[in-house]
Each structure stands twice: as structure tokens, then as C-alpha cells.
């Protein structure tokens, strides 16, 4: 479920069940026109639906990182965000993007969900097997 759907009084009760964080990466550079920015966000929403809806009882979707700086800096920033998310209690971190060129090696993250090189979204079955494998690892 989305971070904003969790009520303050529910959090402590739900915390043991919500052990996975979904961190979306929009991957914009700032050079996008309004139409391109809209498209980026729609693509991200489409790929996020593959996880947010079927696994809403265990995955908390965090606010997205919309803009990307230089790749090395961004990679470092992403690593530190993942590290802090784990420190505050999440057991698993899933990074997700709709961009084909945004996939850095982040040792603190447990799984990347991205489209293939042609931009095709992964199938439900594909995601299901990856997530089951992650949770049973």
C-alpha cells in the first residue's frame, strides 16, 4: 500500500507485516517537456501497478525519486536511501523504474523491477516468481 494510506494508529500493528519497501525511480533529468514528464509518470504508474496492487498487504510504496543527477552521484544517493530504509526496519527493498537506462548496481537493494531493453513490461508471472523467490530467500 502507499505510504499515505497508512494511518498513524495502524502503523505499529501493521509494521511486522509490511516488511518490504517499494522505492520508485522516475529517472527524469530535468530536460523533459511537460508532455514527456507526464509520459514518464504514466509509464512509472503502469509498471508500479504490477506490484502495488497484488502485493499491497506486504509492500509499502514510498514517494518516488523523480530526478536523477550524474549517474555516480545518483547511485551513491540511492544506496544511502536504501540503507536508511533498511535501518528503519524494512527487510527488503525493491527498486522500480519504467526507464530502460536506469539500473544501477545497488547492493542495499534486493530487487530491481525494470522493463526489458525494448521497453516491454515484465509479465505478472515473472514478477510473481521474482517476489516469491525474494521473500523465501
Amino acid at each position: 500500500m502507499k505510504f499515505s494510506e497508512i494511518e498513524a494508529e495502524q502503523w505499529e500493528e501493521l509494521r511486522p507485516y509490511l516488511d518490504t519497501c517499494l522505492l520508485p525511480v522516475t529517472g527524469m533529468t530535468g530536460a523533459e517537456s511537460p508532455l514527456e514528464a507526464t509520459q514518464c509518470l504514466e509509464d512509472l504508474r503502469d509498471i508500479m501497478d504490477l506490484i502495488e496492487v497484488p502485493y499491497r498487504g506486504r509492500v509499502v510504496t514510498y514517494p518516488a525519486l523523480h530526478y536523477m543527477s550524474e549517474p555516480e552521484h545518483f547511485q551513491q544517493a540511492l544506496s544511502s536511501y536504501c540503507s536508511r530504509l533498511k535501518q528503519q526496519g524494512f527487510k527488503y527493498i525493491i527498486l522500480i523504474t519504467a526507464k530502460t537506462n536506469v539500473r544501477f548496481q545497488i547492493s542495499e537493494a534486493d530487487l530491481w523491477i525494470t522493463p526489458d531493453e525494448d521497453g516491454n513490461l515484465p509479465s505478472d508471472a515473472d514478477i510473481n516468481s521474482k517476489i516469491r523467490e525474494l521473500w523465501h530467500s
Partner: peptide
Amino acid sequence: VCKHLGCT
């Protein structure tokens, strides 16, 4: 929809 916490 699972009746525990709403997964599929």
C-alpha cells in the same frame, strides 16, 4: 483479494 491484508 486475500482477506488478511488485501494481497492477490
